[in-house]
Structure formats: C-alpha cells, structure tokens
Write a protein that binds this DNA or RNA. Structure first.
Lengths: 205, 205
DNA sequence: ACGCTTGTTCGGATTCAATTCGGAAAATTT
DNA sequence: AAATTTTCCGAATTGAATCCGAACAAGCGT
C-alpha cells in the first residue's frame, strides 16, 4: 500500500476499492478487469486507486488476504464442535461449511479462491493451511487413539491441499462428473478409511 | 490460430514461437513475458506472432495443449507396466515418472503446469484427466477383486485432482514441509489403505 | 526461366490500459 | 480563518498488445 489512509473518508475509499475489486472480478474475471472499471464501480477517480495501492496487482493481493482472513474467521469457531465429532462427520461438516462460505454472495469467494490458487499459489493461502493444520492437531488430541497413525504431517498436507483443490475445482466446474455430496463423502471416506487402516496396522504390535 | 501455416518455413516459425514461449515463461513467468520478448527469442518480428496466433493468450493456450499432450504421451506407454503392479508400487511408479517429467528441461513443464492449473483450470487438462481415468479403469480390470469397491468414480476424481495438485504444488514450493518421497508414499498409502479398507468392508456380505 | 498467385515476414502505426503527477478540494490543526 | 495536512482527481504519459500494408519468398503453370 503506497500510503495509509488516516481520515475516515479515506478508509471508506479503500474499502470501496476493494469491494469494487470483488464485484469486477466476479463479473469478468481478474484478467479482464481494468483499473477504470474498478474505479467506476467504486465511484472514485482512477488516480485514487494509486493513493493506497501500488498497482492493480496489490488490489488483488489485498482481496486475497481478506478472503483468506474471512475463511479462517469462518473456520475458527467451528473447531470446538468439529473436533468432538467422529472423523467422517467432522470432514463432512467442515466441507459443508466451506462450500456454503465459497458460494455466499454470488460465489464471490469461490471466484477469488480460483484466482488465489492460481497466481499466488502459496503466498496468501499459507495462513489458511496453518489453521487447518491446527484443526488437525486439535482433532488428534481429542482422539488419542489416532495418535498412533504414522506420517501425520504428510497425510495432513495431502488432505488439506488435495481437499481444498478438489472442492474449489468441483464448485467451479459447470458440469462436474460427480455431485458435491459424492465428493464430500468420498473425501470423508478417504480420511476415515485411512485412519482405520492405519490404526489396524499399528494395533497388533 | 488465425491462419494455418502451409509452407515448411511457416511451420518452423510457429514452432519457434511456441518454443520461445516456453523459454520466456520459464524465465519470467507468464504475466511478465511480453510479445516482444517472445518474438526476440524466437528470432521473428512481433507481427509474425499474429499471423498464426489470435493473441498472446493463444500462444499460452497452445503451450498448455502441448504440455498436456506430452504428459499423456509420457503416461500412455507406462500403463501396461503399471496396471500389473501392486497398488502402492503402481502409484509410486506413476508419481516418480510424473515428477521426472515435470522437472525435465529446467522444469519447463512444471512452470507450465502451474500456469495451466491457474487460468484454464479445466479446459486443457481434461484430456489428461481422461487418460488417468482410463488408467484407473484398466488397473481395476487387472485386479478384479478391487471391482467391489464403492464410489470408484468419486475416488478416482479425488485422487486424480488432489494428487496432481499436491504434486505440482509441492514441486513448486521452494521450502516444502515434507519431502517428495514422503508425499508420494503418503498418496500411495492413501490409495492402498482406502482400497484395502473398502474390500474388507464389502467382503463380509 | 518468367510472370503470376499465394504464402510469409516485418516493423512502424495504432489502440488501449496502467500508472504518474500536479494542482484543486476537503478535512484538520493552529 | 489561515495554515497545514490529507484526499481526490482526471488529463498526460508510458509502454505493451495488436493491426496493417508494403516488401519479400515460394510454388506453379506456361
């Protein structure tokens, strides 16, 4: 950000620009949105964009950050409930909330996720990964028997990355080969089967 | 493509442009490559780009298509060998080849995959998905006992999407939290455990 | 080999979006 | 209410993408 807004009026301008960024991106996609469009939607002059943002990229960057922060804020309060559920229900619950979140406001965040996963690829989603890792850790602590599972960091990595991508990809697909419930159920089965099999393998020793 | 090259000379020009596209993309990333750079690397005038490509985007599109086609050509001959192996080895084998393929030529295709997954998101990778689905089908036919598994299309969808993304993401990450071998082993365990657990569940009936 | 048609190359001219800049307007401070 | 700081703006600049028509090369029938 080139300059910090100090007056109330300026803060409103910054908000309007970011908001306009979401609207423009949802309408035409990130590549096709111009600075003039964003400025028009926000109701400010083009020059104003550059008072608070280095360039167009930074507007998208701030949008990504807000998206990730909102996602985390959505997940955090779910954690206490989720960690007490059986594994399969826990996954289904989390995925259901995630889908609703992505689709809210005319899929604002779904479109953003698609973009965030594209350009940044790791930069901004990292805090989200961290939150989900935290969720996994807490889940394991609530289910001590699962602590025997090997390779927990690896499986966590796979499920978080693969899971997020599969869901975003699926929701973006206008003609998906499977339903969302099948996908969610599949991911839940994947986790629960892995857990059960691992525990069965370790038990005999 | 605006026009088809009919003479040999023109075909060479088209090839040089696509080749230059790969080089420029590997050096600076897709967003920072200009038409002039591509033209300079290819050793042609900027105007020549537009003889055979509608616009810069189309150059990237053709690159994506070539990448996917090459990936498929890499996988096809592996199928007969892979389908005869135990599930875990089969996955490890496939992933190893995939990694080597992505990293060849100074990671040319890895950089391309990152981009292909970004903008297109489904358009051009679809043939690859199809090839991998075919591989799964053939694998199942060589291991009839696995046909009892439920939700095969769903699991196939998850493993293909989540697997490709996890691997590409991991290879792009300059400081990955786990090693590639751990990732590959984890994916292989994921598949094999799921398979074993599903077969155990269906057996008793 | 020669003229004619078609295919190819090129780089300057054009278009369009991103970014800059300097001054006007609004808010805040003195 | 003057001075100072903050904010806003849109015309001007910059640079990249794209167009275009002239010049060059290849194929082809005679």
């Amino acid at each position: 950000m080139a300059r910090k807004p100090v007056q109330q009026r300026a803060k409103a301008t910054v908000d309007a620009i970011v908001e306009a960024g979401f609207i423009a991106m949802a309408e035409r996609g990130p590549a096709a949105t111009t600075t003039r469009q964003i400025a028009d939607i926000a109701g400010v002059g083009v020059g104003s964009l550059y008072e608070y943002f280095e360039n167009k990229e930074e507007i998208f960057r701030v949008m990504s950050e807000r998206f990730v922060a909102d996602t985390i804020a959505m997940i955090q309060p779910l954690i206490p409930t989720i960690v007490r559920k059986p594994i399969k229900e826990a996954v289904l619950d989390l995925l259901g909330h995630f889908r609703d979140f992505l689709q809210a406001n005319n899929e604002r965040y779904l479109k953003c996720a698609r973009y965030a996963m594209a350009l940044d690829f790791e930069q901004h989603v990292e805090p989200l990964q961290k939150t989900l890792s935290e969720l996994v850790t807490q889940y394991l602590m609530h289910h001590p028997e699962t602590l025997k599972i090997r390779n927990i960091p690896t499986m966590s990595y796979i499920m978080i990355n693969g899971g997020i991508y599969s869901v975003v990809r699926h929701l973006c697909d206008p003609a998906p080969p499977i339903t969302f419930d099948e996908l969610a159920g599949g991911l839940a089965d994947m986790v629960s089967h892995y857990t059960e099999r691992e525990m069965a393998l370790v038990e005999p020793q």
